[in-house]
């Protein structure tokens, strides 16, 4: 398995197997720190889980990767975020960078256009115009997001009128339509029922062979089910990173980690 070999392949030049390499990342909002001095690596084709209570800096971490701090004026980012070995802030074309990174926000955002156009938007932006090709992408992405069966008869309905859970799956389909190399999921299951969550989780496991996934979640069990490795964030600090199973079995360096994972926190 590629993901397993990745751990040893780091010796080539230290970055070959790494999709993301975060060095001393510090994020603040107008002087108030949200994330302090985080250093971690995300390997190619792994699912990297991030767990932690509210306010631990998980979302800020994801935002900084896609340089989405540029929407938020007060947000300052220091340190290095190496994407394929190069700092994201050195890529001249931020739009091309973002096209390679799919993002799913915690709250569903069905854009006020048809279901079809929601999923076809990204391919269209990158220049795909052929109807047949778009049809194929739309169907594939909606199927993967476990939404196709519910909307195949009404692709021309307004995306913003779908139910919350459907909109969230639409958002996932839209992120997949970018054909991303890196998929950032921020508490994707917050508005989705458990059965659908399970279906999407299965899809994520399949996608792992093509995509590197960073999964921020409030459900520690979800991290246990999906993540190869997991990081525990607490009030802006990365407490520790480790093999998910090992962490859950109690092999932790910091007592706070197992306290959180076992639910005896605070």
């Amino acid at each position: 398995m590629v993901a397993g070999q990745g751990q040893r392949a780091t010796s080539v030049d230290g970055t070959e197997a790494l999709k993301l390499s975060i060095r001393n990342l510090t994020i603040g909002y107008g002087g108030v720190p949200a994330l302090r001095d985080v250093t971690l690596d995300v390997r190619r084709h792994e699912i990297f889980g991030i767990v932690g209570p509210a306010g631990s800096g998980k979302t800020s971490f994801l935002k900084a990767i896609g340089r989405m701090d540029e929407f938020t004026r007060a947000m300052s980012v220091e340190g290095q975020i190496l994407f394929d070995g190069k700092d994201v802030r050195e890529w001249r074309n931020v739009y091309a960078l973002r096209r390679r990174i799919g993002v799913v926000f915690p709250l569903p955002v069905g854009l006020p256009m048809t279901v079809y156009d929601n999923v076809a938007l990204s391919p269209r932006l990158s220049g795909i115009k052929k109807k047949a090709q778009l049809d194929e992408i739309v169907e594939r992405c909606l199927r993967r997001a476990a939404l196709w069966d519910e909307v195949k008869g009404r692709l021309d309905a307004l995306g913003s009128l779908l139910s919350g859970g459907q909109q969230q799956r639409l958002t996932i389909a839209r992120a997949l339509s970018q054909d991303p190399e890196l998929l950032l999921l921020d508490e994707f299951s917050i508005a989705v029922d458990p059965v659908t969550t399970m279906r999407i989780e299965d899809v994520l496991k399949e996608l792992k062979s093509e995509v590197t996934i960073v999964l921020v979640t409030n459900l520690v069990q979800q991290a246990r089910r999906l993540a190869d490795r997991t990081a525990f964030f607490l009030t802006g600090e990365c407490v520790e990173v480790g093999q998910t199973e090992a962490l859950f079995e109690g092999h932790v360096r910091d007592e706070r980690t197992s306290a959180y994972l076992e639910g005896r926190f605070g």
Partner: peptide, 23 residues
């Protein structure tokens, strides 16, 4: 949230305005 969703997808400022904000 519409703007952020579109920008996160890699849309340029003008693409965001043209294909999301104006419609």
């Amino acid at each position: 949230s519409y703007r952020e969703a579109a920008e996160a997808m890699g849309a340029t400022r003008w693409q965001v305005i043209r294909s999301v904000v104006i419609p």
